[in-house]
Amino acid sequence: MAAQALSIARTKPIMPVNPEEERILRFWTPVLLRIILITAVVLMAFGTGLALFVARYHIDPSSLRHAVAVQMRPTMVLSESIQGNPNAMATLGLMVLTLVPLVRVAFCFLLFLKERSSIFAAFTAYVLVGLIAGILLGKIG
């Protein structure tokens, strides 16, 4: 049994070896993650800059102790951002930022599907569903 286990462990390297996996993992994943991350950074920086220099928001640090953020629907955040609302723009940037882990896991899901590794595709699907369940749980309260 131990000898069999050793032989299995040795025959399957964990790093991708075929060109398709290489292409997904080493090229497309970093490219897409970079695009998402830079979009999030630009939105957050633009929203903060607008609040500072155009809308001239004033936040009293002493009021932060009791600060309660307003729950905004994604469609509302998007439409308010287009209208130039700094708060909505920063919120949109934060929402885009949370896409980074989602997309990373989605790429792993594709990788395991390509590998025809159904058990790992199922594990990855569980993680994806868990991340989406987090959004729903937050909405419930």
């Binding site: 600060a67 708060n87 940037g93 934060l94 930022l97 949370t98 991340l131 937050g138 309260g141």
Partner: peptide, 22 residues
């Protein structure tokens, strides 16, 4: 990210604080 999604959708994030921190 899993935790952040719960906080963000619950509204427990102050955007003008969280954005500079991020």
């Amino acid at each position: 990210g899993a935790g952040a999604l719960v906080f963000l959708s619950r509204g427990d994030v102050v955007p003008m604080v969280a954005a500079p921190v991020a």
